[in-house]
Amino acid sequence: MKKLLALAVIAGGVLFVIKRNKDAKAEADLWREATAPTDGPLGTVSANGNAPAKAAGAGHNN
Rank of each mutant, 00 (worst) to 15 (best):
K3C: 14
L5W: 11
H60A: 05
W31F: 09
P52I: 03
L4D: 13
L30P: 00
A56H: 00
P37K: 14
D23Y: 05
S46W: 07
G57F: 00
A47Y: 09
V17E: 04
G57K: 00
K54C: 02
G40D: 12
I10C: 09
V45G: 09
G40V: 05
A6G: 13
A58K: 06
A58W: 08
L42G: 05
H60K: 05
A36N: 08
D29E: 13
A58C: 07
W31Y: 11
V45W: 12
M1I: 06
N21E: 08
L4P: 01
R32I: 09
N62L: 06
N21P: 01
T35N: 08
H60M: 08
A58M: 10
P41Q: 09
A55N: 03
L15H: 00
G43C: 03
G49H: 02
T35W: 00
V9N: 06
G57S: 00
S46Y: 05
N50W: 05
P37L: 12
I10S: 10
N21A: 10
V14G: 02
K19Y: 13
M1R: 11
D29R: 08
A34C: 08
K22W: 12
D39Y: 15
A28W: 01
H60E: 09
A28Y: 00
E33W: 04
L7F: 15
E33P: 00
N21M: 07
T35P: 00
K54Y: 12
N48S: 07
A55R: 03
A26V: 08
K3R: 15
V9E: 09
P37N: 14
A11L: 08
G57H: 01
I10G: 02
A56V: 01
G13Y: 06
W31S: 07
P52W: 03
F16A: 13
T44I: 13
G59E: 00
P37R: 10
T44Y: 14
L15I: 09
T44K: 12
A58R: 10
L4S: 12
E33K: 06
V17R: 03
N50T: 09
A55Q: 06
G43E: 04
D23Q: 15
A47M: 11
V14K: 00
L15F: 10
A11N: 01
A56M: 03
G59F: 00
G12M: 06
A56S: 08
N62S: 11
I18W: 04
D39T: 15
A26H: 03
A11T: 10
L30C: 02
V17A: 14
A36R: 10
M1G: 13
P52L: 03
K54N: 09
R32N: 12
K54E: 14
A51I: 11
G59C: 01
L7W: 13
R20H: 04
K54P: 02
E27V: 03
K25Q: 14
K2D: 15
K19A: 15
A8C: 12
E27T: 05
A24C: 04
A26R: 09
K25G: 07
K22Q: 13
K3G: 15
H60T: 07
A58I: 12
A47W: 06
